[in-house]
Amino acid sequence: MVPLNSNLQHLFNIAQKPTKMGIGLMSGTSLDGLDIALCRFTGNGISTQFELVKFITIPYPESFKQEVQQVFAKRQADLEKVTLLNAYIGTYHAELILQALHEWNIQPAEVDFIASHGQTIYHAPKRLHQHANYPNATLQIGDGDHVAVKTGIFTISDFRQKHIAAGGEGAPLALYGDVLLGNKSGENRVLLNVGGIANLTWLPGDNDFSRVLCTDIGPGNTLIDAACRKYFNKPFDEDSAIAYKGTVNQPLLEALLAHPFLTEKAPKTTGPELFNLDLVAEAQKASSTENISPQDLISTLSAFTAASITSFIKENINTHNLKIFTSGGGARNPFVIGELKKMLPDVFVDDSNALGINPDAKEAILFALLGNEALSGEPVKIGDNPEVLMGKFSFPG
């Protein structure tokens, strides 16, 4: 028998461990910082036992945000800048991981794997790009080899490509973690993530995985944040302070809600490539609301997020005895959550703390979970989604 090389032997040893310590990384479209979740997993699949050991969000400096924004969600970008950022972001994320481990007094050798989402710079499902000879596509940068070599920890990355290769759109991937960690027999649940884009997973209480629905809905924070940056030089509307000072402009809200993406059949995916300030400007022109105050605009965009979410839920999910658990930055937006509760008065709404999952850490936890599945799981069939394990392996040496 030919012996395994040292890298494959190390991989084999990790995969055989009944309990693994893994780090999940998430850097979202809001570009606010890197979420780092240190997780402990025992088992895999629907029998997975999970513990969040440590969590931190390390904010990005403004200089980093500006670098990424040069290529983010742009149909045309500097190819040299994309190439340089791919290496730079991988190395920078590795430095932030080492910083977090140092603060936690944990040695890199104690961590079995890193699962890195990378930084999305362009999401292009075929429905949106409409180039006849090209498939669904998405691009996340922040090379996994750089993360592995810099930290000395085995790294799994680029999860979305396998999903696309197997016939999906590369998003949302939340359903795999939501099913494995959020499913409860006898309870109909919606796990709603309000990040840059809002997405949800519907988990029917009969545990029939063929009925699970996971889909993007529309904008979460992306339009609110973009308008805050443009008009108030703020990265986001903290505590909805701006939204509460404004008034919802009904003609503009109706123009925004008329966008055809919102009535497309689910599952579907989207991103800032579609939901951006150009779209808002078009809606303002169509509704003759170009001259509304910036406060009214923030208030209306916040109402748009809540209305698009509630409209989707009412049209696609039976709300009888339904419980909604929120996560993402939007879970801490009192205006959006307040509107959500007003429009769904008979539905229980709480954040994912009620499930024992830190709502700020949820997406980073998801990728740690996908990393655990890549190492020791088997593909799980959920609805119409590809039955695959995801992630590319990078060895530290």
Rank of each mutant, 00 (worst) to 15 (best):
Y176R: 09
Q66P: 05
Q70K: 12
N5T: 05
L301W: 07
M390A: 08
A115S: 15
P345D: 12
E273R: 01
V111C: 09
S376F: 01
F209L: 15
C228D: 00
Y134W: 13
H123V: 04
Q99P: 05
V53F: 03
V111N: 07
A174H: 07
Q76G: 07
E339M: 12
K234N: 04
E110L: 06
E169H: 04
G383C: 06
D350V: 00
K150V: 05
D143G: 10
R127E: 15
Q99M: 09
A281D: 15
D239R: 11
V347R: 05
V194R: 11
S308Y: 02
A227I: 00
A266E: 13
P59H: 03
G391H: 03
E254S: 08
F367G: 08
L257F: 02
F261M: 10
K65L: 06
L366D: 06
E273T: 00
A174S: 14
G45S: 12
M390N: 08
Q140D: 03
I46L: 15
L96I: 03
A109Q: 15
F209D: 13
T269W: 13
I121P: 12
E290M: 04
S288Y: 14
K285F: 09
G330L: 10
S394Y: 02
I141H: 04
I36C: 11
F113E: 01
M21S: 14
A331C: 15
S376K: 11
L297H: 08
V336M: 06
H320T: 13
E290R: 01
L355F: 07
N183I: 00
I197E: 13
D78H: 06
A148C: 11
Q69F: 01
L85C: 06
N133T: 03
I164F: 09
G177P: 00
G330T: 09
A243I: 06
L8K: 12
L25V: 07
K265F: 07
P396D: 06
I97L: 03
D350F: 01
T289D: 08
